[in-house]
Amino acid sequence: MKKFAFVTGANKGIGYEIVRQLAEKEYHVFLGARNEELGQKAVQSLGFSNVSFVPVDISDTLSIQSAKNKILEVTDHLDLLINNAGIALDFGILPSELKLETLRQEFDVNFFGTFQMIQTFLPLVKKSQGGKIVNVTTDMASQTMFANGEIPQLNILGYNSTKTAVNSLTLAFGTEFGTSGPEILGVTPGFTTTDLNHNAPGGKTTAEGAQIIVKYALSDTNYNGKILDKNGIIPW
């Protein structure tokens, strides 16, 4: 049976590389992006016949619904939903100086957007044998690791807290799904040099970051409700 994956925020960066790596593994991959032109360009530059563009703005309920309808024209099931789309608007801004509107905007995309994606596409993931939902997160969202200084302490209240909330979503849905499936997990690629962090030097390449996410997406081990980094399960 043909396998299908939907990756959001996939016209560049880690998302783009996730699409490439899944397409190489014979998945039919729906490349999700907000911008039609950039999305189509990404599909062309990847050059796979098993990659197709699906416009989706995860902060827009109607856009999510229309993405679902577009995918339903091709398949009734999704083996993988990879919630990669996200924004970071407060790098370099102190918590005391963060504007409420900025924080709301980040939560709107990263948290409420991811929540809606899970709810909307759950029926398709449930139809797959061994369907999986992967939420891309950050190690900076682990309250334990952050407090212990085990990770670079970039005190980015907006971005970090939205991802902590996404981790909470992962735990809540994972508890609901239990052992009957589907499986939901959070994966942090760790520090990766991307547009998200203004291409900060010294991180992994986007291909290396994507590899960590794809490894868990395709793993036979069940990590339902867990948050993982390249070495395995990390604390909340």
Rank of each mutant, 00 (worst) to 15 (best):
Leu98His: 09
Lys99Glu: 15
Leu100Gly: 01
Leu100Cys: 08
Leu100Trp: 14
Leu100His: 13
Leu100Tyr: 15
Leu100Ile: 15
Thr102Pro: 11
Thr102Phe: 08
Thr102Trp: 08
Leu103Tyr: 15
Leu103Ala: 08
Leu103Asp: 04
Leu103Gly: 02
Arg104Thr: 13
Arg104Phe: 08
Glu106Gly: 08
Glu106Tyr: 12
Phe107Asp: 00
Asp108Thr: 14
Val109Ile: 14
Val109Pro: 01
Val109Arg: 02
Val109Asp: 00
Asn110Ile: 10
Asn110Glu: 07
Phe111Ala: 04
Phe111Leu: 15
Phe112Thr: 12
Gly113Cys: 04
Gly113His: 01
Gly113Tyr: 01
Thr114Ala: 09
Thr114Cys: 05
Phe115His: 12
Phe115Glu: 04
Gln116Leu: 06
Gln116Cys: 10
Met117Phe: 05
Ile118His: 02
Ile118Gly: 01
Gln119Lys: 14
Thr120Asn: 02
Thr120His: 00
Phe121Cys: 10
Leu122Gln: 02
Pro123Phe: 01
Leu124Ala: 06
Leu124Lys: 06
Leu124Ile: 08
Leu124Glu: 01
Val125Ile: 14
Val125Asp: 11
Val125Glu: 07
Lys126Leu: 05
Lys127Tyr: 03
Lys127Phe: 05
Ser128Lys: 07
Ser128Phe: 06
Ser128Arg: 09
Gln129Arg: 14
Gln129Glu: 15
Gly130Tyr: 04
Gly130Ile: 12
Gly131Arg: 04
Gly131Thr: 09
Lys132Thr: 11
Ile133Phe: 13
Ile133Met: 12
Ile133Ser: 08
Ile133Leu: 11
Val134Cys: 03
Asn135Ala: 14
Asn135Lys: 08
Asn135Glu: 12
Asn135Gly: 11
Asn135Cys: 14
Val136Ser: 03
Val136Trp: 01
Val136His: 02
Val136Ala: 00
Val136Met: 00
Thr137Glu: 01
Thr137Gln: 01
Thr137Asp: 04
Thr138Ala: 01
Thr138Cys: 04
Ala141Thr: 13
Ala141Val: 12
Ala141Lys: 04
Ser142Phe: 11
Ser142Ala: 07
Gln143Arg: 11
Gln143Ala: 15
Gln143Thr: 15
Gln143Lys: 11
Thr144Arg: 13
Thr144Ala: 08
Thr144Gln: 13
Met145Trp: 04
Met145Asn: 05
Met145Glu: 11
Phe146Asp: 10
Phe146Trp: 12
Phe146Tyr: 10
Phe146Cys: 10
Gly149Val: 13
Glu150Val: 07
Glu150Gln: 14
